[in-house]
């Protein structure tokens, strides 16, 4: 039993070390709000993003981070993002949020701490259009959209004292679907009502006149012929372009692949 506990502890320690060492621990970048390890953006773009982050941080007393890394190896992107958030962006008075993009595995993750989770319950809500911009290589646009989302959510919270509920907003897709289905139902109801005005129908069967006691099956044979087999691969749960969100006591997160 003791051996098992020791083994589990060692495994946990190894995984933790893996996370710690997989992400860059360069002292130079510790104070930066935008880390662009693969050099995806120009200096002016980084400066523009940094300025925007400073504005948001000052306005709402939060910490905001953007990190593009070459690779985090085999580490779990959410664990890595959470580790970085706690290490570098955990000192915001009203909380912190980090966007981590692992270019090696082409995965992204947005994580918030427990404080900012009150303001942004589902970080997936601020990732609208984010993945498409990443796919098209517009990294600056993706980051700008992310910052704009943070600004909107924090502004809404500051004004209303409650988090913006994305599900309460108008959903045009659902509206179009509702109108179409309701119209189809209306057409169906109309056809049924008009059809009910007549009970004149052709009789196609003579079941009313069948003498049930005369029915005798004289042949009843089932012969197996062949078997067709069709196979299709199962959809991989994590292979989607965008991922799902989750929240817990330690903060919220959203992520996926691109």
């Amino acid at each position: 039993m003791t051996k098992k506990i020791c083994a589990l502890f060692l495994l946990f320690a190894a995984l933790s070390v893996n996370v710690v060492f997989a992400v860059p621990a360069n002292e130079k970048i510790l104070n930066m709000s935008v880390v662009d390890e693969p050099n995806l953006m120009s200096q002016s773009e980084i400066k523009s993003l940094t300025d925007k982050i400073k504005t948001i941080e000052t306005k709402y007393n939060i910490r905001v981070g953007i990190e593009f890394l070459n690779s985090i190896g085999n580490s779990d992107v959410e664990s890595a993002a959470r580790y970085l958030l706690n290490q570098r962006y955990g000192d915001g008075q009203n909380g912190g949020i980090l966007l981590l993009v692992d270019m090696g595995n082409r995965k992204w993750q947005i994580v918030t701490d427990a404080k900012l989770q009150q303001v942004i319950p589902n970080p997936n809500d601020i990732a609208g259009g984010f993945v498409n911009k990443l796919l098209s290589g517009d990294y600056y646009g993706a980051c700008a959209g992310y910052l704009e989302g943070i600004d909107q959510f924090c502004g809404y919270y500051a004004k209303n004292g409650a988090a913006y509920d994305s599900s309460s907003g108008f959903n045009p897709m659902a509206a179009v679907m509702a109108v179409l289905i309701a119209i189809l139902c209306g057409i169906g109801v109309r056809s049924w009502l008009i059809g009910s005005m007549s009970n004149v129908r052709h009789e196609v069967a003579a079941s009313d006149y069948l003498k049930r006691d005369t029915v005798k099956l004289t042949k009843n044979r089932d012969t197996y012929l062949f078997t067709n087999v069709s196979r299709r691969p199962k959809p991989r749960p994590s292979s989607g372009r965008s991922g799902g969100g989750s929240s817990g006591g330690g903060g919220g997160s959203a992520g996926g692949s691109f």
């Binding site: 069948l210 005798k216 099956l217 042949k219 044979r221 089932d222 197996y224 078997t227």
Partner: peptide, 14 residues
Amino acid sequence: TQVFNCQRAGKMSF
């Protein structure tokens, strides 16, 4: 998909 050939015959009166 298993495919079967089912043959039925019977007598009845109407």
